[in-house]
């Protein structure tokens, strides 16, 4: 994770477009300026960033499902539950499943676990649009490659 850059997913562990699911790894950094304020003397991973981490997990699945031609933008977060504290240095497993693929939108269920224990979960809705700029699409492709999103599978999956 690079919290300050909103790069929250380290690696895609598994992508199954047929089943509509993805699993990723994300390690909370030992140090971050964010922990200086959240909280002084008691560093915790902010809940909003856990939600963002779940959204990015589901988002990468949708990017792959749409063959890197469409960008999922966060539209709604429902029933978000932050079940336990997450602290610096913890290794997280993030997961998402596609619950509905609509026309121009998608509904997902996402969760994060740590050492086998559920940390948080939420139902997350995305709007899907074309990439607003070519440069944005290029950067997303680079990032997809960096985290090991199986692009070839995404491009051949029907």
């Amino acid at each position: 994770m690079r919290l300050e850059y909103f790069m929250l997913i380290d690696r895609v562990v598994r992508l199954d477009l047929g089943a509509g699911s993805i699993t990723c790894e994300a390690k909370v950094p030992d140090n971050s300026t964010i922990f200086e304020g959240h909280f002084p003397g008691y560093p915790l991973m902010p809940g909003v960033l856990l939600i963002e981490c779940m959204a990015q997990t589901a988002g990468w699945m949708l990017v792959a499902a749409h063959k890197l031609q469409r960008m999922p933008f966060l539209a709604a977060v429902k029933d978000a539950k932050l079940r336990s504290f997450v602290t610096p240095g913890q290794q997280l497993l993030t997961e998402a499943v596609l619950s509905h693929s609509g026309s121009g939108y998608a509904m997902t269920e996402a969760s994060i676990s740590c050492e086998g224990k559920l940390v948080c979960n939420a139902d997350i809705t995305f709007r899907l649009t074309g990439f607003p700029t070519p440069g944005f699409a290029t950067e997303m492709r680079k990032r997809a490659e960096a985290i090991g999103l199986p692009i070839s599978e995404a491009l051949t999956n029907d």
Partner: peptide, 25 residues
Amino acid sequence: SLDFLDIAFAIDKAFGIKMPLEQWT
């Protein structure tokens, strides 16, 4: 439009269809 996504989701599920919202828009 955001609330309509929830409605579209429920209609899609209830009728087993996929309303072509993008085409309509």
